[in-house]
């Protein structure tokens, strides 16, 4: 016998390592370990941002508008602390390009990622549960590339990320599979695009949170869609809502496709109050927020107020 490391040795060691890993994997599958991590709703941490709705408009640079609006509310430093895990949740629902205004503007997402990292965040995660194939939507929306360039961790949501959550106070959506990353983060920034929607007339911040839900979301649309949209807010409680109204989709929403339906408003509005943010968005869209059922329900449930404490509009 010699001391040569033979092929047989190599195969043997590889097999043992593989078996060990596989055994661990098997144990992981069967232990229910992942399921024991299931949470209650996410709790919101107090922050130093000003109350009210802060609006920036006029510039042709969505990133600049985003920065101005957030700065007007007190700045990202008031929200994100050193070492925080931050989730920036855009709408990446559809296989459409930024010009078609069916997904959040990539420059807005990138600006938020950059600001969070500047404020000391340890990691910024960007994800959504797409309606079309996520491989396509992440790419065509331009969001994956822009957010990654700004330093975010962009990932497709693996089905193992969903955990079952009971939502106290919910009226229709008492329990559902929700994204663990959304539940576990220190700061959750909701960044929807403002657009038309067949069922709810318009969609902005509250409806965008459907993207953190797993399971068969189609069932939400039946009957009490508006109530379910309001209920899911209780589970996540976003710290900041950033309404992307740089381009809005005025008809044939939520996925549009025709540039005839796109209107450029060059407006970004931020608020810590999701009801106030959506109510402002509704007005931008040209409808009375009282006519939007999920906004009305959310106010009724005490999730916020359609009349903001203050409204500050700045021209950039």
């Amino acid at each position: 016998m010699n001391d040569k490391y033979t092929r047989r040795d190599f195969i043997g060691k590889a097999a043992v390592t593989g078996l060990a890993l596989y055994g661990m994997s098997f144990a992981g599958c069967k232990s229910g370990f992942s399921r024991t991590l299931a949470q209650g709703p996410r709790e919101r941490r107090a922050n130093g941002l000003k109350k009210g709705v802060f609006v920036a408009r006029g510039s042709s640079d969505p990133a600049k508008l985003t920065r101005s609006a957030v700065d007007a509310a007190g700045g990202m430093g008031k929200l994100v602390k050193r070492g925080d895990i931050v989730v920036v949740k855009p709408n990446i629902g559809w296989d459409r390009s930024p010009e078609q205004a069916a997904n959040t503007n990539p420059a807005v997402v990138a600006a938020l990622v950059a600001m969070a990292l500047e404020a000391g965040a340890k990691e910024v995660k960007v994800f959504d549960r797409s309606c079309n194939s996520d491989r396509r939507t992440y790419k065509r929306s331009g969001i994956a590339a822009a957010a990654e360039k700004a330093g975010a961790k962009v990932s497709f949501v693996d089905e193992s990320r969903y955990v079952s959550v009971t939502i106290p106070g919910a009226r229709a959506l008492k329990e559902w599979m929700l994204n663990r990353d959304a539940l576990e983060c220190n700061v959750f920034i909701n960044v929807p695009i403002l657009k038309d929607h067949g069922a709810t007339r318009m969609t902005a911040g509250m409806k965008n949170l459907m993207g953190i839900a797993g399971g068969e979301r189609g069932a939400w649309h039946v009957g009490e869609l508006d109530q379910r949209i309001a209920d899911v807010q209780l589970a996540i409680k976003p710290d900041l809502v950033v309404i992307d109204a740089f381009r809005i989709l005025t008809a044939h929403g939520p996925q549009g496709g025709s540039l005839d339906d796109v209107k450029e408003l060059k407006t970004i509005a931020v608020s810590t109050d999701i009801v106030a943010a959506d109510a402002y968005a509704a007005k931008l869209f040209g409808v009375d927020p009282k006519d939007i059922k999920h906004i009305r329900i959310a106010e009724e449930m005490g999730l916020g107020s359609m009349k903001p404490v203050s409204l500050k509009e700045i021209n950039v």
Partner: peptide, 22 residues
Amino acid sequence: HLFFRGLYPIPVAGPLAERAHS
């Protein structure tokens, strides 16, 4: 998929598995 997801909850191996998996 079964293999990687099984590794997810395990310390050290989990994050590595997640990276390789994605």
